[in-house]
Write a protein that binds this DNA or RNA. Sequence first.
DNA 1: AAATAATCCTGCGGGC
DNA 2: TGCCCGCAGGATTATT
Length: 281
Amino acid sequence: MVADTFYKIFFPLVPELPEVEIVRRGIAPVIVGQTIDDVIVRERRLRLPVTPQLRQKTRGQQIREVRRRGKYLLIDLEGSVLIIHLGMSGTLYFSPKPPTRKHEHIGWKIGDVFLIYNDPRRFGCVVWSSSAPETHPLLCLLGPEPLSPTFDGIVLRQALKNKRTSIKTALLNGHIVVGVGNIYASESLHKASIHPQTPAHRIGNVRSSRLADSIKIILHQAIDAGGSTIRNFTNVEQASGYFQVQWQVYGRGGQPCTCGGTVRQFKQNGRSTYYCPRCQR
DNA sequence: AAATAATCCTGCGGGC
DNA sequence: TGCCCGCAGGATTATT
């Protein structure tokens, strides 16, 4: 039973893999095994239009499992699946009331609570699919999971060796690896001491191995920081510790790096990149 | 064919 | 105080 107060998980960051994983861990224990009693759709104009099937095909369905693929959340039903992406401003949280507030686009009535999809910028999507999510157009071309044991320096080097674009741009494209967005790309490259403008094919075996390890460590740290404070999504106060995560370079232009250098900011493909010119080569 | 630019959208903060 | 502008970025589409 969720308390009758309005609780909302708010991420100050754009949801990347760790944030989606934390959402997954937060909602799974509450909804797995439960039945979707009803679906309220208030706004269909998301990145992909919300279809009538989202309500028609899922009412009365039991929730079997909650999985994650990259930045996509997968809610398995009985022979079908909900594919949810939080875009840049999406949040999922529980409320005792149906969705009525601004940007509360979708609400699932599950037992005595509502799971609310809130997304001010509407860059996210909520899709119902009757086929296996792995074959869905949204997911079928995605690269490897960075936290999978099969993702390592060898795999990364192989994927980078024919790419002439910069390593930072390569990390963001979803084909080399999934789940790494603008923030964790900068952080991972800093940890691996790699300059963000390095051509991808110039990253050899040694640095590929270091980068793969760095990505895993950075993502795990973020998940642990959130996961250790957000036990479930019924108490927003417990989330405060998550906000205290300190990035090494992201958002710190002009400030000192731990190496004694000064963090710099510049644009790559319209996206802000942060790095330290002293320790990243 | 691959790399880059434009696009969607709202909230927020700076400047005046 | 309020308005305008720029900025923020995930993923798709269009263009070079």
